[in-house]
C-alpha cells in the first residue's frame, strides 16, 4: 500500500490458546499485520470465541459470548486471528440468532470482516513481502476448520514459498484431522490418541524437520504426541516463521541454555 493511504484498522482476535500457551504467535501476527500496513489493536473485552460451549450444545452461553465478541470488535475494519478454528467460530455466530433478531445482522457484519491471518494477508491484502529466513524442511498440516470452513489451503503455502531456506515437504493426508477437536480429545481420548498417532506417522514419513500449522490447538496435540514418541521434529505456528520470530524454543521444547538448543 502507499504511505499516503490511511492504515487499515485491524482488531486482533488473540484466541484463548495463544493467550495462555504461546503469546509469541500473537506478537508475530501483529508484526505481520503491521508490515502489511495495518494498525493493530487488541480489544480488552475479548475472551474466547465460544466454541467449547457451541460444540457442547450450550447455545445460550454461546450467544452471550458471541454478543460480547461482536461488541468488542465493533468499529474495526477487519478482525484477524491466528486460527482458522476460532475465526470459523466467529463466522458461526450468524447461526445463533433468528432472522428478526438485531444481533443477526451484527453477526453477519462481523463475519464479513473476520479473517484467518494467512487468508487475510493473501486474499484481502495481497501481501507477500515475506523477508524471513528459516533453515528447515517443513511440512504443513491443514487444520480442519481453516481448510473446510474458510478455504485456507494455498494461502499458507504461497507465503511459505517466500521464506528463504525453507523447503516444503507435503505429508500424506495433510487434510485429515489430527484428532484434537477441542473437547473431543478429552471426551474420547482413546480415539483422539489413535488419530494423532496416524498424523504423527505421516509427519515423520514426510522427512520434515519442522511441523507447521495455523491452529495452536492442533499444534499442541501433534507436538505433544511427537514429544511423547521421542521425535526431534520442531512444531511451530506458521506466523512465527513468516514473521521471522523463531528465536524461542518450538512448541513443547525445553528452554534454551546459554544459547544452545536443549
Amino acid at each position: 500500500m502507499h504511505a499516503s493511504e490511511k492504515p487499515i484498522k485491524v482488531g486482533l482476535f488473540v484466541t484463548c490458546l495463544v493467550d495462555m500457551f504461546r503469546p509469541s504467535i500473537g506478537f508475530a501476527t501483529i508484526k505481520l499485520l503491521e508490515n502489511a500496513g495495518c494498525k493493530v489493536s487488541v480489544p480488552e473485552a475479548q475472551t474466547c470465541c465460544g466454541q467449547p460451549a457451541f460444540n457442547s450444545g450450550d447455545k445460550k452461553s454461546t450467544q452471550d459470548i458471541a454478543r460480547q465478541t461482536i461488541q468488542a470488535f465493533d468499529g474495526y475494519e477487519y478482525v484477524v486471528g491466528p486460527s482458522g478454528s476460532c475465526i470459523g467460530m466467529l463466522h458461526h455466530y450468524t447461526e445463533l440468532f433468528d432472522e428478526n433478531d438485531p444481533w443477526k445482522a451484527r453477526a453477519e457484519d462481523l463475519k464479513s470482516r473476520a479473517f484467518e491471518i494467512t487468508s487475510f494477508l493473501t486474499d484481502v491484502l495481497d501481501f507477500n513481502t515475506i523477508l524471513s529466513k528459516y533453515d528447515a524442511k517443513a511440512t504443513y498440516h491443514d487444520s480442519c476448520a481453516g481448510l473446510r470452513e474458510l478455504g485456507v489451503k494455498q494461502q499458507p503455502r504461497k507465503l511459505l514459498a517466500k521464506v528463504a531456506n525453507l523447503t516444503l515437504s507435503e505429508m500424506e493426508e495433510s487434510e485429515t484431522c489430527c484428532g484434537f477437536g477441542g473437547t473431543f480429545c478429552v471426551k474420547y481420548p482413546d480415539i483422539s490418541n489413535r488419530m494423532v498417532e496416524n498424523k504423527t506417522s505421516n509427519i515423520v514419513d514426510s522427512g520434515a524437520t519442522t511441523l507447521l500449522g495455523g491452529d495452536l490447538g492442533c499444534l499442541l496435540n501433534m507436538a505433544g504426541k511427537l514429544k511423547r514418541q521421542g521425535h526431534k521434529i520442531e512444531t511451530r505456528h506458521i506466523v512465527e516463521v513468516l514473521a521471522g520470530m523463531t528465536d524461542e524454543p518450538a512448541i513443547g521444547d525445553a528452554d534454551y541454555e546459554l544459547g544452545q538448543p536443549a
Binding site: 500457551f21 481420548p189 494423532v196 504426541k225 514429544k227 511423547r228
Partner: peptide
C-alpha cells in the same frame, strides 16, 4: 495418557 502437554511460553 497418550501425549505430553506442551508448556506455556512466558
Amino acid at each position: 495418557d497418550g501425549r505430553d502437554m506442551p508448556a506455556p511460553r512466558g
